[in-house]
Amino acid sequence: MSEPKRITTPLTDETVKDLRIGDSVLITGTIYTARDSAHKRLVEALDRGERLPVDFNGQIIYYAGPAPAKPGRPIGSIGPTTSYRMDPYAPKLIANGLKGMIGKGNRNEEVIAAQKKYTAVYFGAIGGAAALGAQSVKKAEIVAYEDLGPEAIRKLEVEDFPAVVVNDAHGGDLYKEGMATYQRS
């Protein structure tokens, strides 16, 4: 595996364009968690022409709902949830300035097209390695939709959060390429 690229949030177009499928990255800075219910509310707010509770310009959304934090810890175990459930909402958020998403699993054509058009990147994190995942989260606070419990939007301060570029802004798809490389008949 190539040496990981260190990137910081917010992401610029230059940073995003520089990322290619298969790149390992270490992310430092602020990222936001949001899952199904939060996405539904965000997009409904956009449809009504309202301002979002969080400014996602240049930001990364992590599709994740953590386990509760133990006393003295910023967060409980945290890892990615399956991304396709956010596909109906993601293009709209990308069109509104979102630059990155972290999750697991395939995205649909619309999301990939929006990534190309507006220069955004999709990272895969390791599903199920969530006790490890919690170690790169230094701070966490709920910033919106607290009533959603594990699905509330959290602002995370992360340090060297490990992820792999799955869909880059050039239309590349690691899931397809990776499978083609290691397929045997």
Partner: peptide, 11 residues
């Protein structure tokens, strides 16, 4: 033999 691999990154 499908090639999906760990986390689907190929393998």
């Amino acid at each position: 033999k499908l090639g999906i691999g760990p986390q689907g990154f190929g393998g």
